[in-house]
Amino acid sequence: MVTVMEPPQTVRPQTPPEPSEPAANQVEKPQAMIDVREVDFRYGDNKVLHDISLQMPARAVTAFIGPSGCGKTTLLRCINRMNDLVDGSGISKGAIHIDGIDINSPGLDVVDLRRRVGMVFQKSNPFPKSIYENIAYGLRVAGVKKRSRIDEAVEKSLRSAALWDEVKDRLESNAYGLSGGQQQRLCIARALAVEPEVVLMDEPCSALDPIATAKIEELIQALKTQYTIVIVTHNMQQAGRVSDFTAFFYLGKLIEFGPTVKIFTNPVEKQTEDYITGRFG
């Protein structure tokens, strides 16, 4: 854009602009979708995250692992600003960017952010409504009124969550009648219905049996072609199975971050190795 004030240039700048180097860069390395930079987080006076920096690439699964209380859930909840609900807590240093936008900048619309960054909780929390209304909820609050569009979204997201065949005949029955695994998949479907770019999952399988867990893991694999997924898990094998990148946290610090294969087979840090081999944690 040329500003009006600028005088007409007679002399060309000596250095011609480098021909399209940034563009070439972008094509080569996968764009970092979620960019966490030097983040500190506090609950009141209690600092729970120390100087966390990591970049989670788009359309891949990033797993957060680490012992309880290491801050992985806290970091996850920073990404869609769920921590706003906790009084007296907040990011005290650093920033989180999603697609280059600082999600904590004052002008940012939190509601819009949460629409783009969906979340699945540890304890499945379907609403005490019908299965249909559970899925439709996100669309309705976004102001979608057209029945046909909602119908379509309900079917699509239930199919994506591999739940459609099990519930298609009882969409109007209460979601509390579903089994634990189905409820969790319903919550995933509900998150997908608003077409987010990122899906955060906070130990989505912690209350499920192995068969239900396997289904959800399968689902995560299928979803990563379309969504950027961040998953917190206590289950090391799960992290190994589903994720492309793994971040290991310990006592509020990011110890190591890298491709899952590397973290599990050839970790750089001693602590990571100890944790992964089950020597502590």
Binding site: D112, R114, R115, G118
Partner: peptide
């Protein structure tokens, strides 16, 4: 959980 679930879906 119901409040968080709702907020996480982009409800005000």
């Amino acid at each position: 959980g119901l409040r968080e679930g709702s907020l996480a879906l982009g409800a005000t």
